[in-house]
């Protein structure tokens, strides 16, 4: 999977956000706010193909957390990206 290149993270009022692209253009009523971990993963995965295992590795190396927990979080993160239509597969 790959994060669609049409999405960029913006700094809006101190929040890191991604604005959803609707069929009418940038939909400012649908904004996804990224927390620190999400932003870390986004920056690490943006512009390249990745799998859940890559996200998991990134979490383990970046935060030193247990691999089982990292796998769960990595899957949840990827599922969210997919649910929000941010992936270009």
């Amino acid at each position: 999977m790959r994060i669609s290149s049409k999405y960029k993270v913006r700094d809006m009022a101190g929040q890191h956000v991604v604005i959803i692209q609707g069929r009418n253009g940038e939909d400012m009523t649908r904004i996804i706010s990224l927390n620190e971990t999400s932003l870390y993963l986004w920056n690490g995965m943006y512009g390249r193909d990745f799998e859940v295992s890559d996200v998991c590795d990134s979490l383990v190396s970046g935060y030193g957390i247990d691999r089982t927990l990292a796998e769960k979080d990595a899957r949840a993160w990827c599922d969210k990206l997919k649910e929000c239509g941010l992936l270009a597969e």
């Binding site: 913006r10 809006m12 009022a13 604005i19 609707g22 009418n24 253009g25 940038e26 939909d27 400012m28 009523t29």
Partner: peptide
């Protein structure tokens, strides 16, 4: 989001030739 910040982003998108919905 404060109005000024919000519309700053709207302006940026419009200047880039994008349509913006709010």
């Amino acid at each position: 989001i404060p109005n000024d910040v919000f519309f700053g982003h709207v302006m940026e998108s419009l200047a880039a030739g994008k349509h913006v919905v709010f």
